[in-house]
Amino acid sequence: MTLTAVILLGAFHGINPAMGWLFAVARGLQERSRDLLLQSLPVIALGHLASVALVVAVVSATGSLVTGTALAIGAGILLVGFGLWHLLARRHFRWVGMRLSLPQLAAWSFLMSSVHGAGLMLLPVLTRMPAGHHGHALSGGLFVAGVHTLAMFLTATAVAVVVYEFVGVAVLRRAWFNLDRMWAFALVGAGVFTLVAAV
């Protein structure tokens, strides 16, 4: 998986309404304020980055303790298991209400990104990074997380502005594609890819 794939995964997260742009649009429409929408998106991206960075920290911390193959196999199993759980789960994580402060919005984004396994999708990249000094592995992983989150942020911003200015949320009732289900299949696919590449 290359940096291009990392960017594409970020863009995919940006398109997914569950990762935050829909929440930002709802806040903007609720207060009739494009500024509120635009203030929400960087905070949502920050929560997303924190979730992904947590995965990076765990991978870089264990990389020196566990062989790359064992880590890749464990990551693959985790991805497949999480994807299957996400496919079979009947309920999704819910937050209370739409009136959140910016710190609460960042916490919401962190939880949603974590629940949806945002950082897990980067495991194939992180487990293939050269093993070496802990600081180098961490900085390389944080670079990957940063590029991924930037792609997510730019895509989410574009989608949110288009929906807010031209489409409105009513269109989602007529033309809804279940990105959560697609995301779960993507998790399983990434897990299978990781397992095959590791064996």
Rank of each mutant, 00 (worst) to 15 (best):
V162A: 14
A198W: 00
L9V: 12
G28S: 11
D35F: 03
L84Q: 11
L36I: 09
V25F: 10
E31K: 12
A61Q: 11
F153V: 00
A106M: 14
L150K: 00
A5E: 06
I15K: 03
M152Q: 02
V188F: 11
Q39N: 12
L142N: 08
L38N: 01
F166Y: 13
V188C: 13
V161I: 15
S113I: 10
A170W: 09
G28E: 12
A50W: 10
G83Y: 02
G168C: 05
L22T: 10
A24S: 15
R90K: 15
S109F: 09
L46M: 13
S64C: 07
N16I: 09
M19H: 15
M129I: 15
S64G: 14
A18S: 14
V96E: 15
G189N: 08
G191Q: 10
V162R: 09
G81R: 08
A156L: 05
V192Y: 07
W183D: 06
M152I: 01
L142C: 09
T157R: 05
L154F: 02
V192R: 06
Q30N: 12
L120S: 03
G20Y: 03
A26E: 10
R34I: 07
L179G: 09
M112D: 08
Q30A: 10
S40P: 04
G132M: 12
R128Y: 06
I77Y: 08
M98H: 11
H48G: 12
A156S: 15
A118G: 13
F177T: 12
V144L: 14
G14S: 11
H148K: 14
L138C: 11
H133F: 09
G117Q: 01
A118I: 07
A197R: 01
A190S: 07
V80K: 01
F23Q: 11
F143I: 11
W21D: 09
S60R: 05
L102K: 13
G141L: 12
V169D: 02
W95K: 01
L123W: 01
W21A: 07
T2V: 09
V125G: 02
V163T: 11
A26H: 06
T157G: 03
S51W: 09
W108D: 00
T155W: 00
M121W: 03
Q39K: 15
M19R: 05
L111R: 01
R27V: 05
P103K: 03
L37P: 00
L126H: 04
R174H: 15
S51K: 06
V96W: 06
H13L: 14
L138D: 08
V66C: 04
L71K: 01
F193Y: 11
S60V: 07
L172Y: 11
P124I: 01
V163R: 03
M98C: 03
V171R: 09
A26D: 05
V162F: 13
G141Q: 10
